[in-house]
Design a binder for these strands. Structure first.
Lengths: 353, 353
DNA sequence: GTGAAAGCGCTAACAC
DNA sequence: GTGTTAGCGCTTTCAC
């Protein structure tokens, strides 16, 4: 490979390939198309403002030279690098995966790149990721949640970069926010169970010290259940991650502590599915003895046996609305309006209630 | 906001905030620390090569000025932009989500950023993403699969950027590869069922025209089943995405076409779970009448009722090994060895077989 | 160990 | 519509 290169280098004039094969630049394209570099630059960014003749010549030169633009140089010159930094707890979480995928697709249309960071639910890690993100002079930052370390908030505020906080509503955002209220989700679950005539209910959650959105759902659930005349409303938490297996454990725990429960709300569908399997094993009929509602509308919810009533958060909508706000802000500096978008959520009733 | 800025600008000297408040640069830090910019640069990249005195002064200045380095400028100057571009079908797919998350964590330790792209199983989209990726002069490119459009391969080869193809083994990689053989996965499933005494088996898959890794699993399954004396070995495909619901549909179809089946292998655990639920509804006992094996070891597999035998692909290992190869290559240009890493996979036996 | 100088490849006024 | 001129903020020889 290197030998190959050298042999070319020896034979050629010195313009190309001095040491390594020099990268093809915009100037090379300009030379070949007999125009100036700035015309090539203009053509690349706004083709319609260049004369057809020049445009064609440039296109031909790009093709012939296999020119690949250098966005790093472009970003430096323009002082805004078409990068949007997206910081979420983890894409292993299907909720965030959905939003990240949608965001990437939507931003990609506007020729923006997504840079990804995972906090793994650590505020320290989040702050470090934000610091790194800012070093890329990003066109925007998307970050999950409204709760951040003080340093993170300070950094973000000082940066003057558009910031969208996603998947949560309730407190005042740093800049913009797209999401819904998790307290309302909990409230909706309780409300649904009460309307179905249930009186004695438990909320099953996992790792709610760290996942404070889950904790908010629990809070909303308990408050609404009690306000609406539930005879019993308790919350049971496990420090472990919210897996299907933990769902089974939580159900066992709940039934042991309160054998006469008639309804269960789960912090998410993984837990609900675990509870469902555990009920199958114990021959606890759903929904006859126990009504069951989850959160997430994960892929298995509609096909479960019985199918799972759940609350669907609009992960894709969050992605689309976030992209829209970001793009609007970039187009128009003083777009002050509409800093917060409530995407709401939907209760999907199925057989389990 | 703007008014605020103006009032400050009016009162201040002209050094800071001419129009907008000028960004703090490395020179500012250097001035304040009474050293040259290149010393600051050196300190930032190799702190140990700078004298303690200078180091402390610089650290203090950075702190005082709230200096945020500009990686875009750094990337341009160094002609290598600490970015690794990761291109996968979708992070909505739990397999890729796992790998992407691990990759980001591992690369992050080496101060590399992950840029994300989703092909949505389109080769055209993939090529376009590769083109964009190269424009960032990335330190590496990670891309799912071994099958790409000819143009994609040409671009990648010409770029001289380290490339790792992941989640598949079998053909010759462009550069490096980390993954396992999907034919072997199918073979292992068939082998497992045969050993459990099954004779009449079907492979259930979805969208196998597009997801050709699934198609490879089907192939390996059929070939091995037949070689090892299965009386019946068929493959059933649905053009729809591989969801839990489609799993139920496929099972119904399989049982209708071959009522005397005694084993089912599914292209992934979502399908397997759907098949499992459908069996529950039809009172088809698992594993007595029908043995069931999936692929993926998704979170619900171990907790299902009955628990699901499946094949676990090492999504996290793939991420870690990919990071390792990339880092090794960056450290040492002519690292020729070990271009392909077979991560293997594990058959996890549970109640469903 | 530290500094001076020379770009990296592009964009963005501003003339023409 | 097109070209000229300055940088963007940093890294990297190469002296000292």
């Amino acid at each position: 490979m290197d030998a190959n290169l050298k042999s070319i280098g020896t034979a050629e004039r010195s313009t190309r390939s001095r040491r390594k094969s020099r990268r093809v630049t915009m100037s090379d394209v300009a030379d070949r198309a007999s125009v100036s570099p700035s015309t090539v630059s203009l053509y690349l960014r706004k083709p319609e403002t260049v004369s057809p003749a020049a445009g064609q010549a440039i296109a031909k030169a790009i093709e012939a030279l296999d020119y690949v633009p250098n966005f790093v140089a472009g970003g430096l010159a323009a002082a805004s690098s078409r990068v949007v930094s997206v910081i979420v707890p983890s894409v292993r979480n299907a909720f965030f995966a959905e939003t990240v995928a949608t965001l990437q697709a939507e931003l990609g249309k506007a020729r923006l790149q997504v840079m990804l960071g995972h906090t793994e639910y650590s505020e320290r890690e989040e702050e470090s990721l934000v610091r790194t993100a800012l070093s890329w002079a990003p066109a925007g930052i998307v970050i999950a949640g409204l709760a951040h370390a003080p340093g993170t908030i300070k950094l973000l505020r000082a940066s003057r970069v558009p910031v969208v906080e996603i998947w949560e509503l309730g407190a005042t955002p740093i800049d913009m926010a797209v999401g819904f209220s998790h307290r309302q989700v909990g409230a909706a679950a309780a409300d649904h169970l009460i309307r179905r005539g249930r009186k004695r209910m438990a909320f099953l959650g996992a790792r709610m010290q760290e996942d404070h959105r889950a904790a908010q759902r629990a809070e909303g659930f308990l408050a609404t259940a009690r306000e609406n005349g539930a005879e019993l409303a308790v919350s049971i938490n496990q420090p472990a991650p919210a897996t299907v297996e933990v769902g089974g454990v939580l159900l066992a725990q709940a039934l042991q502590q309160h054998p006469d429960l008639d309804a269960i709300a789960c912090s998410n569908d993984h837990l609900a599915l675990g509870a469902l399997f555990e009920c199958q094993r114990r021959n606890v009929p759903i929904p006859e003895q126990l009504a069951l509602i989850g959160f997430g509308d994960l892929p298995f919810a509609s096909a479960a046996n019985p199918s799972l009533t759940t609350i669907r958060p609009p992960g894709d909508l969050i992605g689309r609305e976030t992209a829209r706000l970001l793009l609007a802000r970039m187009g128009d500096e003083d777009k002050g309006a509409e800093q917060v978008v409530d995407t709401h959520f939907v209760v999907v009733q199925r057989q389990s209630t």
